[in-house]
Design a binder for these strands. Structure first.
Length: 568
RNA sequence: CGGGGCAUAGCGCAGUUUGGCAGCGCGCCUGCUUUGGGAGCAGGAAGUCGGGAGUUCGAAUCUCCCUGCCCCGACCA
């Protein structure tokens, strides 16, 4: 292709609307333009990248037996009422009415539609399992769209749904999809982790997120460098430390005036925060209040807390006035000793001996506290956030933290939709079986953003070869005024096309600096510079985007080299 | 949804405090020169100063209302 015939509106300066690398570079490189908050137009260059990503996804899914379909984006409310999500989805779902005043949703996801499809067409267990997917537009009216294509309101998602007679069948497909997602991300050339995640409100059990590692990512993941353990911070298990075997000291009550925080208490009593415990009071499911005890240096994990039977969900801290009424002291002086409410203690807190805690008496703390002797009623649970350096739950090393961009999420739906929507078939024995479902999502437009986030330098994007808008950027210097350059550039473009190399020839009447700067910005993996000087010796310059230095060679040799790189 | 900020030419910004001809850089158009890392000179086009109401002889500037956008927190591919 020729630059003079392609719409590539690059920007020299950073638009004020963007402040992270991927957003800035996609705008500046002429890949996307914003229409309104969270709404983006994909320009020719951007579409080329999207299509490549989609092609890879299709290949990996089709290879594993998934079949592509395409479902409507506008969906009747009736279906959503059946699943109960017309109410449950809230403002995130864009709603509208047609000319007959009937309610519709702009689909944020397709479980309802695909389940409806399945109950109409899956008339026998002999058709199972079935794995359907589509690459489609979704709309989610995000509270706060940001970071350009990383969190847009309208976006392209590959969503897949599988249907099974039993869990074994589901597990096989789940594993296939897990492999497919890893294969896609590997082919795209990304550093990523498949992490254990919370199913959130879509699924009903454990799931995996595919996180592309990037410092600007919104999610924190805990992973073990020595093994393949990786989990979302919400999910990462905090293993029990070895219990202290110190001989019990005498329980003592000490005045701790003006000590409101663990840091205050630790400093005042000259002990480390990890020898103190803090007691948090949350709302209970059965009782008004529930206590959760953590080691002084640890943080509560709200997801884990929400799974505790006695804790009300969503997890909410008790109001200070309620605490004062119930305990006659402020939150800073609470401890597990003699507390008249259900008490959960984190494993790390339980492992302590002779620790410090609040005395449930304003301005006093207890020292030398021991669980068995002084606060035996506590139930030991895992309820804290892991911290870097914690042992990995698989016993193979210690955890580290990284930030990630969630580009994919796969989970088991079970019968969450098939049951309320009546999706069942008869099995071989003539019994009605409600189908088990799996759900597999991958954000395609987000993935493009994540790629740029991971693959760029100060000058611009460095596309992984598999998804680059072009294989090679041909910089023809003086194309319009030097016949030899003109001819050589056209010939090189032809040579590329004959070899199946996608090339962009910069045939514009621009100066060298402009052309080089834009080539770096756009980020094709290979760059070939054709200038009068080197051409006199029959040479052109070749430089990979990610390397500083290029070299000179005859054009045919370079075309061959690029063709080879493309096919390996 | 809560908190903060911004809105002036296609893009980036100054001008607003203290009301008085709407400006600068980049980009765009024309011409000449230049030509391997975002050129130089000359000329030119381009603005409902986000919208509405008000104060005033006079409003980009002051007041009120509205809208849009960005950033920080709880959700998600």
């Amino acid at each position: 292709m020729r630059a003079t015939e392609t719409l590539i509106p690059t920007l020299k300066e950073t638009p004020a609307e963007a402040d992270i690398a991927s957003h800035v570079l996609l705008l500046r490189g002429g890949f996307i333009r914003r229409l309104a908050s969270g709404l983006y137009t994909w320009l020719p260059l951007g579409v080329r990248v999207l299509r490549k990503v989609e092609a890879i996804i299709r290949e990996e899914l089709n290879r594993r037996g998934a079949q592509e379909v395409m479902m409507p984006v506008v969906q009747p409310a009736q279906l959503w009422r059946e699943s109960g999500r017309w109410e449950a989805m809230g403002a995130e779902m864009l709603r509208m009415k047609d000319r007959h005043e009937r309610d519709y949703a702009m689909s944020p996801t397709h479980e309802e539609v695909v389940t409806d499809l399945a109950r109409r067409v899956l008339d026998s267990y002999q058709r199972l399992p079935v794995n359907l997917y589509q690459i489609q537009t979704k709309f989610r009216d995000e509270v706060r769209p940001r970071f350009g294509p990383l969190r847009a309101r309208e976006f392209t998602m590959k969503d897949g749904y599988s249907f099974h007679l039993d869990d074994d069948s589901f597990e096989r497909t789940y594993q296939d999809m897990r492999d497919a997602y890893s294969a896609v991300l590997r082919r795209v050339g990304l550093d990523f982790r498949a992490v254990l995640a919370d199913g959130g409100n879509i699924g009903d059990s454990e799931s995996h997120e595919f996180q592309v590692l990037a410092g600007s990512g919104e999610d924190v993941i805990a992973y073990c460098p020595e093994s393949d353990y990786a989990a979302n911070l919400e999910m990462a298990e905090a293993v029990a430390p070895a219990p202290s075997d110190a001989a019990p000291l005498e329980l003592a009550k000490v005045a701790t005036p003006d000590c409101r925080t663990i840091a205050d208490v630790a400093k005042f009593l000259a002990v480390e925060p990890e020898h103190c415990v803090k007691t948090l009071i949350v709302r209970g499911a059965e009782t008004p209040l529930v206590a959760i005890v953590l080691r002084g240096d640890h943080e509560l994990n709200l997801t884990k807390a929400g799974r505790l039977d006695a804790v009300a969900t969503p997890v909410a801290f008790a109001a200070e006035t309620d605490i004062r009424t119930a305990l006659q002291c402020s939150p800073g002086s609470i401890g597990p000793v003699g507390l008249a409410m259900p008490v959960y203690a984190d494993r790390a807190a339980t492992a302590l001996a002779n620790f410090v805690c609040g005395a449930n008496d304003e301005g006093y703390h207890l020292t030398g506290v021991n669980w068995r002797r002084d606060a035996g009623g506590a139930q030991t649970v895992d309820v804290r956030n892991v911290v870097p350096g914690d042992p990995s739950p698989d016993g193979k090393g210690t955890l580290q933290f990284a930030r990630g961009i969630e580009v994919g999420h796969i989970f088991k739906l079970g019968v969450k939709y098939s049951e309320p929507m009546g999706l069942s078939v008869q099995n071989g024995a003539g019994e009605d079986v409600t189908l088990t479902m799996g759900c597999y999502g991958m954000g395609v437009t987000r993935l493009v953003g994540a790629i740029v986030e991971q693959c760029h330098d100060d000058a611009g994007i460095i596309w992984p070869a598999a998804v680059a808008p072009f294989d090679v950027h041909i910089v023809a210097l003086g194309y319009d005024r030097d016949a030899a350059v003109h001819e050589a550039a056209d010939a090189f473009l032809n040579a590329c096309e004959e070899r199946g190399i996608e090339a962009l020839l910069d045939d514009r009447d621009e100066r060298a600096g402009v052309k080089f700067a834009e080539a770096d910005l756009i980020g094709a993996p290979h760059r070939v510079t054709i200038g009068a000087r080197n051409l006199k010796r029959g040479l052109v310059e070749y430089k990979p985007r990610h390397e500083g230095q290029g070299d000179l060679a005859p054009p045919e040799r370079i075309a061959e080299r690029i063709a080879q790189a493309k096919n390996t």
